[in-house]
Design a protein around this nucleic acid. Structure first.
Length: 465
RNA sequence: GGCGGCUUAGCCAAGUGGUAAGGCGGAGGUCUGCAAAACCUCUAUACUCCGGUUCGAACCCGGAAGCCGCCUCCA
């Protein structure tokens, strides 16, 4: 089965064909760094990570660009409230963002362009739009003239005449020719304080939408493969990107638009009043491991609303533990006689896994395939119908799956002296059949965050997830 | 008002015409000093509800209810 993605542009699953064979350029809308990112944000970044990992798994050379919005109303307001410079203000959240990405084992993009270091590119693009007559000046601002772009609404299927005109738009209306025209450039305002750039098109700062057009085109070219973001970005942000980009270049901007749905928390939408807007930090502080968060965010199909629950985190913990235990079980295999059935199981699993992921990244089905393999191979291990070399092949396949999942890398377990001694003491007690003592020591070991299992090969110490 | 999505077991979640994947949880069993892990059995006569199409529908069509999203800078 060929790789297919649901393209928002056509509302259909389409076979994926890159512009340049073997290579993929993708632009993923990134964070505005005015606060810590919450798990909803990470749901989208996790989807993008899955997308990039699977493309790489398929052998594509991926160039991913994720913008960092470090100047906008919120960052300006935040820095002014704290009476610090905007870059000082945003640095904390930018650093935190990258720390969180690492914690979640989200692969790094090739480029993380920041708005404030790409003013020139944005100014150039705005100039081009002015020159071509797609934009106009009004006081210090520059707006995109929506009526000049006939295809407006092709992504979101929204019709301009149906847009509800909100109060806030109305208050600006006198400056714009049309209420729905959006700002490419915002002339300096007192509220902006020292946040402004003196440029050929005036003193001020860029609008939000122009950032993504300018930076995507700089790193990926005027026409590229994939553009993604949360569903909320579909309108107006992505619609506006298309309008300004295609007006400026006269070319099709992006071939495939992919949007992820939002998540809800414990069945309710995230909101300040419910106090259920969790950052990754909030969750880790409650004692959960980032792997569990990764698993939860990953395991629901990206176009399905995800219900994030703490019970779900527990379930994820046990599911991951099952996979780790399986890898451990493989290591205990001693058999010499190869079993052709193993080869069949691996072939079947690999092809089903790829069919699932090829079908618009159906990770839920892909996970089902992996757990089927785990059960089937565990059974062979129990029945001693598997050889050491078979087991190695299975492990290799699991590692290959994990290139996509990103949950099975395990930190090396180093037993400190105290732990080693406890394990030895317990073994001694067991030899002497002093079960009380042995159980007491086991409790002590568990207090150190470890579990101990007695196997025919001797005691096995595991770190609790 | 306009546009769009979702509703599958105790929980999470696949499946989009051929008779319900998978994970977690729960019950029982094998193994074990006891555990743990692993394995085995069981855990939705049934997919929000009501109509319709069809030999056959969770899947298609119509309607209802509930939930969610976007409609100018919220992933």
């Amino acid at each position: 089965m060929a790789l297919r993605f649901f393209n928002t542009l056509t509302r259909e699953k389409e076979e994926f064909a890159p512009i340049v064979p073997g290579k993929v350029g993708m632009y993923t809308c990134g964070p505005t760094i005015y606060d810590y990112a919450h798990i909803g944000n990470f749901r989208t970044y996790m989807f993008e990570d899955l997308l990039r990992r699977y493309l790489e798994y398929k052998g594509f050379k991926v160039t991913q660009v994720m913008n960092i919005t470090d100047v906008d109303d919120k960052t300006i307001a935040g820095s002014r409230a704290k009476k610090i410079s905007i870059s000082e203000y945003t640095k904390e959240f930018k650093d935190a963002f990258f720390e969180d990405l690492d914690a979640l084992n989200i692969e790094r993009a090739e480029f993380y362009p920041e708005a404030t270091t790409h003013i020139k590119e944005m100014v150039d693009l705005v100039k081009k739009l002015l020159d071509k007559g797609f934009a106009y000046r009004s006081n210090g601002d520059i707006y995109f003239k929506l009526s000049s772009f006939k295809d407006y609404g092709k992504l979101s299927k929204m019709r301009l005449e149906n847009l509800k005109v909100g109060a806030r738009v109305a208050s600006d209306e006198y400056e714009k020719e049309e209420a729905s025209d959006f700002a490419l450039w915002k002339g300096w305002d007192q509220k902006d304080g020292d946040v402004f750039w003196e440029t050929e098109i005036g003193k001020g700062r860029p609008g939000w939408h122009i950032e993504c057009s300018a930076m995507s085109m700089k790193y990926l070219g005027e026409h590229f493969d994939i553009h993604t973001g949360g569903i909320d970005n579909m309108f107006p942000h992505h619609e506006n990107e298309i309008a300004q980009s295609e007006s400026a270049t006269g070319k099709k901007f992006v071939n495939y638009w992919l949007h992820s749905l939002h998540l809800i928390v414990e069945g309710k939408k995230m909101s300040k009043s419910l106090g259920n807007i969790y950052t990754l930090r909030d969750i880790l502080e409650k004692g959960y491991n980032p792997k569990m968060v990764r698993y939860v965010l990953l395991s629901t199909h990206y176009r399905q609303q995800l219900n994030f629950t703490f019970q779900g985190l527990e379930a994820a913990k046990n599911a991951i533990q099952r996979l780790f235990d399986f890898l451990d079980n493989l290591k205990t295999v001693k058999g010499e006689k190869d079993n052709p059935e193993v080869f069949n199981l691996l072939q079947k699993a690999k092809s089903k896994f790829e069919d699932a992921l090829n079908d618009d990244l159906n990770i839920s089905e892909g996970l089902g395939v992996i757990f089927d393999l785990v059960r089937d191979v565990n059974k062979l291990i129990d029945d001693e119908k598997i050889s050491k070399s078979d087991a190695l092949k299975v492990e290799k396949q699991m590692r290959s799956f994990d290139k996509v999942l990103g949950v099975l890398e395990k930190e090396k377990l180093v037993l400190d002296e105290k732990l080693k001694e406890l394990v030895e003491q317990r073994e001694q007690a067991r030899k002497e059949k002093d079960w009380d003592k042995a159980d007491k020591i086991r409790l002590e070991i568990e207090k150190l965050g470890m579990t101990i299992e007695d196997t025919p090969e001797g005691p096995k110490v595991k770190k609790k997830l």
